[in-house]
Simulated assay, not measured.
Amino acid sequence: MAVTHIFFAVFALVLVYKSDVCSSTHVSSSPTDAAVLIVVDQSGKGHYRTIREAINAVPSKNSELIYISIKPGIYREKLVVPADKPFITLSGTDASNTIITWNDGGRIFDSATLSVMASDFVAIALTIQNTFGMRGKGIALRVSADKAAFYGCRILSYQDTLLDDYGRHYYYNCYIEGATDFICGNAASFFESCQLHSLAKAFGILTAQHRNSPSENTGFIFLGCNITGSPGGTDLGRPWGPYSRVIFGNTFMSNTVSPEGWRDWDDPRAQRTVYYGEYNCYGPGANRAKRVGWSRELSHDQSAQFLNRDIIGARSWLRPLPTHFKKRRPQHVFDVKDYFWKN
């Protein structure tokens, strides 16, 4: 089962890359298509027993692709990928059995289970979890760097689950769970084929986007996603910043979405400056008959500028999985199939 899931995660990554990069004249900023392989295995059969040790082993000012393969297990670790260690991939075998978990809350920038501060980061098939619960802010994932991509990951908490802080980010086939402002920040992010699950029973907010001026090219774009949860209690978003921008396109909205759809965070002035749009959404929660009048039902032409990965410049930085791995000692390069199918 693990082999099957890692195959599909890799296959999805390759498809996304080919559809968005190979047809472009731009190239990825990746230094090479071969990666240094580091294996994390709690049983002691890998290079390290903890993910923290593997990240620490990456040299400062790294310029190589680093592929950290994490064997199944529950890793109780609070992790930071430092800004001077770009080009790191953290890959599990299946998000259901490769779990990074911590329990911390309070300050929004300090509580994250995993903080990504380095550019050119990739995560595949991981659960990233903060178990702080309903007591307050408890971030599972903080992304405060440019060019980060997440494939087949589960991101779980209650309040402020995903601090999508700044930079350009891509989420594909991810499951994101929370209740209050559970996707927040001022990044330029594209969420494709993701499930957004609200835990709220009466008052929930999916997004709190933090765009502060019309000149900022930031916002959250959701394409082909699926919104689920308890009936009637969750809004699509509210403005953390006065020019907050969120668009949902071709998204299924269950009856968890409130009829009004959006909130102004008790500041009517925001109604004149936010950009909240919906295009071709469907399901019982997509009925716009009672939507707030300051949200937008977008036409095909209006939505076209948002509903593609070009809005995050993905052609220039999304990269495929490395085609070869190499070990530091001895220097040996082998095909990706040799590792995934024999280990």
Rank of each mutant, 00 (worst) to 15 (best):
residue 126 L to S: 05
residue 21 V to R: 13
residue 201 K to H: 10
residue 95 A to G: 05
residue 195 Q to F: 08
residue 186 N to I: 04
residue 23 S to G: 13
residue 44 G to L: 01
residue 15 L to D: 15
residue 238 R to P: 00
residue 106 G to F: 11
residue 63 S to M: 12
residue 6 I to S: 10
residue 217 N to K: 12
residue 340 F to C: 07
residue 234 T to H: 05
residue 144 S to G: 04
residue 16 V to L: 10
residue 91 S to R: 11
residue 230 S to N: 06
residue 290 K to T: 07
residue 7 F to R: 12
residue 308 N to C: 05
residue 228 T to F: 02
residue 267 D to I: 14
residue 87 F to N: 10
residue 249 G to L: 05
residue 246 V to E: 08
residue 11 F to C: 08
residue 277 G to V: 02
residue 288 R to Y: 01
residue 7 F to L: 12
residue 7 F to C: 12
residue 299 S to C: 00
residue 338 D to T: 09
residue 203 F to Q: 06
residue 314 A to K: 12
residue 142 R to Y: 09
residue 203 F to H: 10
residue 190 F to I: 05
residue 172 Y to F: 13
residue 263 R to C: 13
residue 114 L to T: 04
residue 215 S to C: 07
residue 245 R to V: 11
residue 40 V to A: 03
residue 189 S to L: 01
residue 84 D to L: 03
residue 308 N to R: 07
residue 46 G to D: 10
residue 161 T to N: 08
residue 153 C to K: 12
residue 149 A to L: 02
residue 189 S to W: 03
residue 342 K to Y: 06
residue 47 H to N: 11
residue 145 A to F: 02
residue 52 R to Y: 06
residue 240 W to Q: 06
residue 199 L to I: 03
residue 193 S to Q: 14
residue 144 S to N: 08
residue 257 V to P: 01
residue 161 T to G: 15
residue 105 G to R: 07
residue 66 I to S: 00
residue 118 A to T: 13
residue 69 S to M: 09
residue 190 F to T: 02
residue 343 N to M: 06
residue 244 S to M: 13
residue 308 N to H: 14
residue 79 L to R: 03
residue 303 S to P: 00
residue 243 Y to F: 13
residue 49 R to L: 06
residue 328 R to S: 03
residue 109 F to V: 12
residue 167 G to M: 05
residue 97 N to Q: 09
residue 49 R to H: 03
residue 269 R to S: 14
residue 122 V to F: 12
residue 320 P to G: 01
residue 261 G to K: 15
residue 198 S to A: 00
residue 101 T to L: 14
residue 247 I to G: 02
residue 26 H to F: 04
residue 319 R to I: 02
residue 143 V to M: 01
residue 63 S to F: 03
residue 259 P to Q: 13
residue 34 A to Y: 12
residue 202 A to G: 00
residue 77 E to K: 10
residue 295 S to V: 06
residue 4 T to Q: 15
residue 85 K to F: 01
residue 96 S to I: 11
residue 336 V to R: 10
residue 307 L to G: 00
residue 231 P to Y: 03
residue 209 Q to I: 01
residue 241 G to I: 09
residue 96 S to K: 13
residue 57 A to V: 00
residue 249 G to C: 10
residue 268 P to T: 01
residue 298 L to V: 10
residue 316 S to C: 07
residue 319 R to C: 03
residue 238 R to W: 14
residue 99 I to Y: 02
residue 110 D to Y: 11
residue 195 Q to S: 15
residue 306 F to I: 05
residue 138 G to H: 06
residue 299 S to E: 02
residue 221 I to Y: 14
residue 80 V to D: 07
residue 164 D to P: 04
residue 221 I to M: 04
residue 270 A to R: 15
residue 200 A to K: 03
residue 199 L to T: 01
residue 297 E to G: 14
residue 274 V to G: 08
residue 168 R to I: 00
residue 252 F to H: 11
residue 325 F to P: 00
residue 26 H to R: 13
residue 134 M to P: 02
residue 157 S to W: 10
residue 221 I to L: 09
residue 203 F to I: 02
residue 126 L to A: 10
residue 43 S to Y: 00
residue 19 S to P: 00
residue 60 S to A: 11
residue 279 Y to D: 02
residue 186 N to W: 03
residue 5 H to C: 09
residue 87 F to Y: 15
residue 76 R to L: 06
residue 217 N to S: 11
residue 231 P to H: 01
residue 200 A to C: 04
residue 237 G to F: 08
residue 184 C to R: 08
residue 77 E to N: 12
